[in-house]
Amino acid sequence: MKIAVASSGDDIKSEASRFFGRAQFFIIAEIKNGKIEFFKSVANSATSESSGAGIKAAQLIANEGVDAIISTAIGPNAFELLNNLNIKIYKSTQGSVEENLKLFNQGKLQEVTSPATTRGRRGGRIL
């Protein structure tokens, strides 16, 4: 299974990002038999977009062929795109990317079934 985690840094030890569309990086991890087989860092080119960052980030993730994303909050447009592509969404917890992946493996992360409704800090848009 291929999992993407919104991250504030380019390493598995980095903190999970509070944002999806404006996360600095996504850590893509391949999980087999409950273990992280490998991971790679993908810079999020959508961070500097004036609008549509969530959709662009969702497209980036989809192009990586992931099965699931772990993030704090995903806006309605990105949520719909990920849902249409059958990419499951799980709510991250405070901590590192690695900690979130371990919690995912243990079945301790909540699956997200609706988009975020709270507003982000950038001009009132959902991040």
Rank of each mutant, 00 (worst) to 15 (best):
I126A: 14
T117F: 02
I12D: 00
L101H: 00
G124C: 09
R119V: 11
I61F: 01
N83V: 05
I27S: 00
G34R: 05
G52Y: 05
R22K: 15
S50M: 10
G123N: 12
I12K: 01
A4E: 02
L103N: 12
V42I: 15
I126K: 12
S48A: 14
S92F: 02
E98I: 10
G120I: 14
K56W: 06
F20K: 09
L101M: 02
E111Y: 11
A46M: 08
I74P: 00
E111S: 09
I61L: 15
I70Q: 02
A6P: 01
A4W: 00
K40N: 10
E80H: 10
A53E: 07
L85T: 04
L81Y: 14
I55D: 03
A6F: 01
Q94M: 08
S45C: 01
S51W: 05
T113Y: 05
K13F: 10
A53P: 00
E37C: 10
A6L: 10
G124R: 12
F39Q: 03
K102H: 03
F39N: 11
G75A: 07
K88P: 01
S8G: 02
N33S: 09
A62N: 14
G75W: 08
K2W: 08
I89K: 14
I31Y: 01
F39G: 00
E49M: 14
I87A: 09
L85K: 15
A43M: 13
I70V: 13
A29N: 01
K35S: 10
G120C: 12
E64D: 04
G123S: 12
E98W: 11
D11M: 03
E111W: 06
D67N: 15
D11V: 03
N83H: 03
Q94T: 11
R125T: 11
I61P: 00
L81R: 06
L60R: 07
V112E: 04
S14E: 06
D11L: 04
L81I: 04
E98H: 06
A4L: 07
G120M: 08
I126N: 04
G65C: 06
G123L: 13
E111N: 07
A6H: 01
K91E: 14
I27H: 00
A78G: 09
